[in-house]
């Protein structure tokens, strides 16, 4: 079974956003699929987010700011931790299923069948931010040690049920340290399950080829958007305009 899944919590996104994503998937997927929105994900980790989130007010727009003596990217608290709980919630599916996770603000430009038919599934997939590798990786290498500029992006993930359970288990085992240290799920996974991780956690993921998932951040006028074209870096309102 091919499954397209998304996740919704809080009040930033609505049922309309879920329905809108479903309609887009229906229009852009040439293979049969089941669609499901995880809207009741386990929130028992919320206490760790509240304990370690070092800002007083949650910022809603992507800009540098300082609160309580900390820079924005040092606020900690993994605000989107619920996405990690999907790696445990997937146990209800058949182990032969293939899951394609899409963020609710995903902008689809091509046939999603690629993610179900063209990948080998030996390891789970996520987006590699190829665009940060310019100038010999200057940006991400300079900022690796200060938990910025990860080469991982979890907006589009493909996995088999259970494949990402080690990530969930790792957070559970080091829960206080994880929520204290990381400002985002992407940085956490890049450091702890990426190419520079330690031991068996190293290279947990594989990545879509360049051009399959693109970003509005760096797309030139003459370049073609990928099957999925991400709108990261835009405000919620700007994304809404793009998606309608």
């Amino acid at each position: 079974m091919f499954r397209v899944v998304c996740a919704k919590w809080g009040n930033l996104y609505t049922e309309d956003d879920v329905n809108s994503l479903y309609e887009k998937v229906k229009r852009n997927c040439s293979v049969d699929f089941e669609f499901e929105c995880f809207d009741n994900l386990d929130d028992s980790w919320e206490q760790y987010k509240l304990k370690h989130y070092r800002a007083s007010a949650q910022p809603t727009y992507r800009r540098e700011e300082i609160q309580n003596g900390y820079h924005r990217d040092d606020f900690g608290g993994i605000p989107h931790y619920r996405k990690i709980t999907m790696f445990e919630a997937d146990k209800k599916f058949n182990s032969n299923d293939t899951l394609l996770y899409l963020d609710l603000d995903t902008n689809i430009s091509g046939d999603l069948a690629y993610f179900f038919e063209e990948l080998n599934n030996e390891k789970p997939y996520l987006v590699w931010n190829y665009w940060y590798e310019g100038n010999d990786g200057e940006e991400w290498k300079r900022q690796y040690h200060i938990t910025r500029c990860p080469l991982f992006n979890s907006s589009v993930m493909v996995w088999k049920p259970g494949q990402n359970k080690p990530i969930y288990d790792f957070v559970l085992k080091h829960i206080d340290a994880c929520f204290f240290t990381y400002p985002s799920m992407d940085t956490f996974m890049f450091h702890q399950f990426g190419p520079y991780s330690y031991g068996s956690r190293k290279n947990h993921f594989q990545y879509y080829n360049q051009g399959i998932v693109t970003t509005q951040k760096v797309l030139k006028e003459y370049e073609k958007p990928g099957i999925i074209h991400m709108l990261e870096g835009l405000s919620h309102e700007e994304k809404k305009k793009w998606l309608t």
Binding site: Y70, H71, D74, T181
Partner: peptide, 11 residues
């Protein structure tokens, strides 16, 4: 230290 600086997550 208590210096506000990028990467300082534990003042």
């Amino acid at each position: 230290c208590d210096l506000t600086k990028r990467g300082h997550i534990n003042l």
